[in-house]
């Protein structure tokens, strides 16, 4: 089937072209940013695109800057390598650099974009897990204007997001870091350079109450633990008001086992993945706790 290709010159034009393309192809139009997942899906014959809207060159999707509220704004079109090496990210949200460093390998990081990965919503993806833990806001532009979607409400089903077919993810907005905050990213994979279906990842952001030495707030995102990137809401509650330790982790394990339903694959069973998720979560919470200034 014939495929069209458009390269709009502004984000507003891209939204207009995307609307036209979706209507003309009955929803078979695709945005192209890094083109990584898209190329794989095409080679695997899982995708037969009929209209590409190339947003890879749009200046409005680039850049990493401090935002007016003291947080950070990351353009959806920023490549993983840029996130990994950004001094601003390293200084204020090191967990994102830690996460980006773990994505596949250099070739992929040089092309793939943080926004593209979030919109793909692969259950094994790393950026989704991090933005959930950090309570990021995902800002999208559509024909009706700008819409802010909490990352915790973005991932709806297997490769499905809250984004409409005519909306474009514009930027990831991170809230300002808090006092006594610590964050960490942990990952388990069969081969380090490959994000296969057996990958399990955990992102943790917490704040420590220095008076009680307990966890005040916590954000938990999990990859490879279900059909979507997971916001582990119930497991978060198990940590609040507790100090990381044996008792706390036993409760976490019990809650987490009930909360996640990892998909079994040709390497690991569902039960084994639950076990691994709990182990990686414990290690990652401990790391985040130490980074918040808490003692072991």
């Amino acid at each position: 089937m014939d495929c069209r290709y458009s390269r709009p010159e502004s984000l507003a034009e891209a939204v207009a072209v995307l609307c036209e393309a979706q209507e003309a192809t009955e929803g078979e139009a695709h945005l192209v940013a890094g083109g990584v997942a898209l190329g794989i899906l095409m080679n695997e014959k899982l995708l037969a695109p009929r209209w590409f809207v190339d947003v890879s060159r749009l200046a409005e999707l680039k850049g990493i800057e401090a935002s007016e509220d003291g947080g950070l704004r990351i353009g959806a079109g920023c490549r993983h390598r840029e996130v990994e090496r950004s001094p601003l990210v390293a200084e204020r949200y090191a967990i994102l650099a830690e996460m980006a460093a773990e994505i596949a390998c250099g070739r992929i990081k040089n092309r793939g974009t943080i926004g593209g990965n979030i919109c793909l919503a692969d259950p094994q993806g790393d950026p989704p897990v991090a933005v959930i833990a950090l309570r990021a806001t995902l800002r999208a532009l559509g024909p009706k204007g700008t819409r802010d979607i909490p990352a915790t409400d973005f991932f709806k089903g297997l490769y499905e997001t809250a984004l409409g077919p005519d909306e474009i993810l514009q930027e990831i907005r991170l809230p300002p870091p808090q006092a006594n905050e610590g964050a960490a990213f942990g990952k388990f994979s069969a081969r380090r350079a490959m994000d296969y279906s057996s990958t399990i990842s955990v992102a943790v952001r917490l704040t420590r109450d220095p008076a009680s030495e307990q966890i005040l707030e916590i954000g938990l995102g999990l990859g490879g633990s279900g059909e979507t990137p997971i916001w582990a809401k119930e497991t978060e509650k198990a940590f609040i008001g507790r100090r990381p330790g044996d008792e706390c982790f036993a409760l976490m394990r019990e809650t987490l086992f009930a909360e996640i339903e990892p998909l079994a694959d040709d390497l690991y069973s569902q039960d084994y993945k639950r076990h691994v998720a709990a182990v990686i979560m414990k290690r990652t919470v401990e790391k985040a706790w130490q980074r918040s200034g808490g003692t072991a």
Binding site: V32, L38, G39, I40, F52, R81
Partner: peptide, 9 residues
Amino acid sequence: QPVSSCILL
């Protein structure tokens, strides 16, 4: 920069 040319349009 190194890239995978087989998946790059």
